[in-house]
Amino acid sequence: MRRVAALVVPILFVAAALTACSEDGDGEAAICDSVSSLKGSVEDVKDIDLSASGSLEDLKSSLTEVGNALADVKAQAKSEFSAPLSAVESSFDALKASVEAAVADATATTVSAAGTALSTFGTDVEALVDDVESTC
């Protein structure tokens, strides 16, 4: 159960960080739309019941959607947000590797590493959202 808690808390953090991006009165710019899609993908990850059988596989599958949404953000952001995007991409790669390791061998160590990677990803996403939010 501690392994599940180690993953749930960072997932909630990421979702809360992404909730900060809002629409402007004249409609959202392309980057704001992309960040909104990323937010939806992360919320889907948040909704995974990590105590259920197969939840790590569900998490791994959901990371594909997060990756696609992240690619859209990158395409829209161009060089304007290169520093936070680079950090998010790097932490996302580490997260994917950690989740794959936990899926392959769900030990306290691998699940804890996935939780740590998810927390780092959340911090990096929050920085990106803060930067993008200032343009929305």
Results as ranks from 00 to 15, higher is better:
M1D: 05
M1H: 12
R2A: 15
R3N: 12
R3P: 07
R3K: 07
V4L: 10
V4P: 11
A5R: 11
A5P: 07
L7A: 13
V9Y: 08
V9P: 00
P10D: 11
P10E: 13
I11R: 09
I11M: 15
L12F: 13
A15Y: 10
A16C: 05
A16G: 11
A16M: 11
A16S: 15
A17G: 14
A17E: 07
A17H: 10
T19M: 15
A20W: 05
C21K: 12
D24V: 15
G25F: 14
G25M: 14
G27K: 08
E28Q: 12
A29F: 15
A29N: 11
I31K: 05
C32G: 09
V35Y: 04
V35P: 02
L38K: 09
L38Y: 06
K39Q: 08
G40W: 08
S41W: 07
S41G: 15
V42S: 05
E43L: 14
E43Q: 15
E43A: 10
D44Y: 08
D44L: 10
V45T: 15
V45A: 15
V45F: 04
V45R: 07
K46L: 09
L50G: 13
L50D: 03
L50M: 06
S51Q: 01
A52R: 04
G54R: 06
S55V: 07
L56I: 08
L56D: 02
L56R: 01
E57C: 05
S61F: 14
S61R: 00
S62L: 08
L63E: 03
L63N: 04
T64A: 12
E65V: 13
N68V: 12
A69I: 13
L70S: 09
D72G: 10
K74C: 07
K74D: 07
K74V: 13
K74Q: 11
K74T: 13
Q76R: 06
Q76V: 14
A77F: 01
E80W: 03
P84G: 14
P84Q: 14
P84L: 14
P84M: 13
S86L: 10
A87R: 03
A87W: 03
V88W: 01
V88Q: 05
E89P: 01
S90I: 06
S91G: 02
S91A: 08
D93F: 00
L95P: 01
K96A: 13
A97C: 04
V99H: 00
E100Y: 00
A101W: 01
A102P: 02
A104D: 02
D105C: 06
D105G: 04
A106P: 02
A106L: 09
A106N: 09
T107S: 15
T109M: 10
T109Q: 07
T110I: 09
V111D: 02
V111W: 05
S112D: 04
A114S: 08
G115H: 04
T116Y: 03
L118T: 08
L118M: 08
S119L: 09
T120A: 03
D124S: 13
D124A: 13
V125A: 13
A127K: 12
L128P: 00
V129C: 03
V129H: 02
D130C: 04
D130P: 00
D131I: 03
V132Y: 01
V132K: 02
E133K: 12
S134K: 14
S134Q: 09
S134P: 00
T135M: 06
T135F: 10
C136W: 07
C136T: 15
